[in-house]
């Protein structure tokens, strides 16, 4: 039984609470550690952040700005010597539960859009030319934007095995096409490369999957002339998912534009290990730094990064 106390019951919105925490370990003292952190939920496209908090340990000093993709970024510089850096965030986000119902359009209709210019070009990890033959084999016969988005997403979902080991954070779209194995980041890169080769502007989205505890997630978004950016998730085999499926943290051309913690450190040592974990639950619970640290204890640790 559900009792709703106060406020207006709105079944078209759902509120979720999220926690994300990451720890970076080093083999020597780090003298300064300067990072751009992209861990604030984006505003708009069916998503409204209600409250967001971000911590780093050691604390460091920082500034905030919006990057050219509209992601909110905190740059934090930690200048006290440290052997591990923890980045943690929590908050509540109101999400639309409605799945978009876009009208189908000709692929040609998105080709000239100024908004999409940058998103058909090659980016550091996605070179459309190198997966162009594959893209045309899979979806070259169609002139419809939605059909192409579906064919590519579904093909990558079915044909590329989900698995770690074959790839890393720097694996390119064409390497995924040869390995035919990868995680959500790799599947997304391959789908992006194929969609771009076919002329559809598309971008990389990173965030958290709602209702789950585990890793961060990545999926693709393609540009629709009337509806804006629509989701295409080659890891789950879903096109046009409702906003409630994700807490969307950042978008960009590929992973290099959205990586959650991106920067440099000065040390005689090296980056030795990394652990990260995310959790998203339905409902409004307020998580503290301690909750985030507790969650982090259960994270899978990657050594020798």
């Amino acid at each position: 039984m559900q009792t709703y106390l106060g406020g207006e019951l709105d079944c078209r919105r759902a509120t979720v609470s999220y926690i994300y925490a990451a720890r970076y370990g080093y083999s020597g003292d780090v003298l300064h550690n300067d990072n751009q952190i992209r861990l604030f939920p984006r505003e708009g496209e069916g998503q409204d952040p209600l409250r967001t908090r971000l911590w780093t340990l050691p604390r460091g000093s920082g500034v905030e700005y919006g990057d050219r993709f509209g992601n909110r970024v905190r740059r934090t510089r930690v200048v006290e010597p440290h052997r591990s850096l923890i980045v943690a965030t929590s908050g509540q986000v109101s999400l639309s539960t409605r799945a978009p119902q876009p009208a189908d359009v000709y692929l040609d209709e998105v080709k000239g859009l100024a908004e999409g210019m940058e998103f058909v070009m090659p980016s550091p990890l996605v070179d459309p030319e190198r997966v162009s033959a594959l893209a045309f084999c899979v979806a070259g016969a169609s002139y419809s934007l939605l059909e192409v988005a579906w064919m590519v997403t579904d093909w990558v979902y079915r044909e590329v095995r989900y698995g770690r080991g074959a790839t890393n954070v720097a694996t390119t779209a064409d390497q995924v096409a040869s390995a035919m194995e990868g995680v959500c980041q790799d599947k997304t890169h391959l789908a992006l490369g194929m969609l771009r080769a076919l002329g559809a502007p598309c971008r990389y989205a990173s965030g958290l999957l709602t209702g789950q505890t585990g890793e961060t997630h990545a999926w693709a978004e393609f540009l629709h002339p009337y509806e804006g950016w629509l989701g295409a998730d080659p890891t789950r085999g879903v096109v046009n998912p409702p906003a409630r499926d994700y807490v969307k943290l950042a978008v960009g051309r590929d992973y290099t534009d959205v990586s959650p913690v991106n920067g440099s450190f000065l040390s005689m040592g090296t980056a030795a290990e990394c652990a990260a974990i995310a959790s998203v639950e339905f409902g409004e619970t307020e998580a503290t730094l301690d909750d985030a640290l507790r969650l982090l204890e259960g994270a899978y640790v990657v050594r020798n990064v």
Binding site: S61, G62, E64, Y65, R75, R77, V79
Partner: peptide, 16 residues
């Protein structure tokens, strides 16, 4: 603009 000056490598937040 903030996205320009705050991404300068030699902008140091601790000097604020």
């Amino acid at each position: 603009p903030p996205e320009v000056v705050f991404t300068s490598r030699y902008f140091y937040p601790e000097v604020q």
